[in-house]
Design a protein around this nucleic acid. Structure first.
Length: 499
RNA sequence: GGUUCCGUGGCCGAGUGGCUAGGCUGAGCUCUGCAAAAGCUCCUACAGCGGUUCGAAUCCGCUCGGAACCUCCA
């Protein structure tokens, strides 16, 4: 019996708003798609929360035995600042501002994004497709939608015909939107528009020849619509219908709604069985976003160089902070909360370091009650994660396990079977490292190492002055064993090298 | 205005009908040469009002407060 059969997963499906048992189309295979970044700018902490949330989904599903194909795209074209037609292209805009070639912008921020992921221990997906690498697939999809009669061409642009689509299918189901309300609210903006209805959206957008990023198509030169890439790439790599699609709450409408419409319009089937939406990171109760000026970059977080930050925080403390709340709740950022998280994480991190080195110390006959209690904790890790990826509850269990680990660390024996001990140990380590992606913090900076060695050098000097050569030699030999070579200078000064 | 969601102790945050997570902070204690770590104890809450129920933080209604989406955003 596999782990996922022992601990069946349930997921809150945004489509129904309810928690549903997770039944993949073709177990043990799972198709998971999540919307990646638009690489026109650095990702900020808010963006990171979503990527972390789906990283954990990917990690856990894999851990319990599913064979997950995780697709997370890079949007490197076609993301206009609005759908109405007068929007600017984000990548082109950044290119102009930074005086770079658009693909230089793409490269720069893709590299930066990967670096941030590495630092926060966000695993690379199975496939990380780019919009520019799938222009052909996107054009094919536009053709299909046109052939099916759910789109129309105006001046070289192709728009999705929402009204027409609604004659046969539903639109607005995911976001619970009423199309008439939408039309009501935006009627004023409709004049001189290329679109038949304000709710229609571009699936192919004509651009002028001075636009650097552009591709030939049956409708002239242009760029694919933003919503289209996810439809095309999701379909290509995961099939016309796949298991899970995730993204930030703010993408629910219009992005994901349009994605559904495009797939249904092209293939007649809804693309996703379980929609998952990660909630926003807030600052003083307001969504963190660039436009509000309350966002900060990962780099600023490590240095503390931002007006909102009282001090620097480590990546793992931040990751822990995010995992302490459920992905579907808003999480409020504050220095107080982050400092608390920092300390809490340290406790877990110490326990992790300790249990790796711990061996089983038996104590008398097996206490069945105690064994049961510890087995319960092991099981709780699974049931909590299987319950809609409840990382907060899982962490609470890991803290309870930490109490036991600290006891054992202090040399206290335990009256359980060695088998239970080993499972306890393995579960703790794998939930920390593999499932939650929390690793021991060991990134000490050079400055700190220098400081530490100076302290030792000072001690060694004193030992030599006191002719305590046994101690001074021990300091030098022990450091050498760590790859640090101390060298005595002529005038009693010391220097060192590190391998 | 429309749609959706939220309001839990000093702070952050789980929890969906009875069994009242967890972390951080504060106070006291144990251990300890000092410090740290670790352990123990205490501070025990569900915005307000009303209703359903034997029983509600959890369900229903109203009031107040806040947020997200409806334009780009993870």
């Amino acid at each position: 019996m596999t782990l996922y059969e022992q601990h069946p997963v349930s997921i809150t499906n945004s489509l129904s708003g309810k928690k549903e048992p997770f039944v993949p189309l073709n177990p043990p295979f799972v198709g998971l798609y999540s919307c990646g970044p638009t690489v026109y700018n650095e990702v900020h902490l808010g963006n990171l929360r979503t990527f972390t949330a789906f990283d954990v989904v990917y990690r856990y599903l894999t851990h319990i035995g599913y064979r997950v194909r995780y697709v997370r795209n890079i949007t490197d074209a076609g993301h206009l600042t609005n759908d109405a037609g007068e929007g600017v292209d984000r990548i082109e805009e950044s290119a102009k501002l930074e005086q770079l070639e658009p693909m230089e912008v793409v490269q720069k921020y893709t590299t930066s994004f990967h670096e941030v992921c590495r630092i926060f221990n966000i695993l690379p997906p199975s496939i990380e497709p780019t919009a520019t690498g799938h222009i052909v697939e996107q054009i094919e999809m536009v053709k299909k939608i046109l052939d099916n009669g759910y789109a129309y061409e105006t001046n070289g642009s192709v728009y999705f015909d929402v009204r027409r689509f609604m004659e046969k299918y539903k639109y607005g189901e995911l976001s619970g939107r009423n199309i008439d309300d939408l039309l009501e609210g935006t009627r004023e903006l409709d004049r001189q528009d290329e679109k038949r209805n304000s709710v229609d959206f571009a699936i192919w957008k004509a651009v002028s020849p001075n636009h650097i990023q552009r591709w030939p198509s049956p409708w002239g030169e242009g760029i694919p619509g933003w919503h289209l890439e996810c439809s095309a790439m999701g379909t290509k790599y995961l099939g016309k219908t796949f298991d899970i699609h995730g993204g930030g709450m703010d993408l629910k409408f219009p992005h994901h709604e349009c994605e559904i419409a495009q797939n249904v319009g092209a293939y007649g089937v809804t693309p996703v069985r379980y929609w998952m939406h990660a909630n926003m990171l807030t600052v003083n109760g307001e969504k963190m976003s660039k436009s509000k000026g309350n966002s900060f970059l990962p780099k600023e977080l490590f240095t503390g160089a931002h007006p909102l930050l009282e001090k620097a925080y480590s990546p793992m403390a931040v990751r822990f902070f995010m995992l302490q709340s459920h992905y579907s709740s808003t999480l409020d950022f504050s220095n107080e909360a982050l400092s608390a998280a920092e300390k809490g994480f340290k406790k877990l991190s110490n326990a992790l370091g300790a249990i790796k080195k711990l061996d089983f110390i038996p104590l008398g006959a097996e206490d069945h009650e105690l064994t049961k209690e510890l087995e319960k904790l092991i099981t709780a890790c699974y049931t909590n994660m299987s319950d809609d990826f409840n990382t907060a509850k899982t962490l609470a269990v890991l803290f309870e396990m930490t109490s036991w680990i600290n006891d054992w660390k202090a040399g206290k024996g335990t009256a359980i079977a060695s088998e239970t001990f080993e499972r306890f140990k393995q579960t703790f380590i794998s939930f920390m490292e593999d499932v939650l992606g929390l690793r021991e913090e060991e990134e000490h900076n050079q400055e700190m190492i220098d400081g530490i060695i100076q302290v030792l050098i000072e001690l060694r000097k004193q030992a030599r002055t006191n002719k305590n050569y046994a101690l001074s030699d021990k300091i030098r030999d022990d450091l050498k064993a760590l790859g640090i070579q101390l060298m005595d200078g002529k005038a009693g000064d010391m220097s060192y090298t590190i391998d």
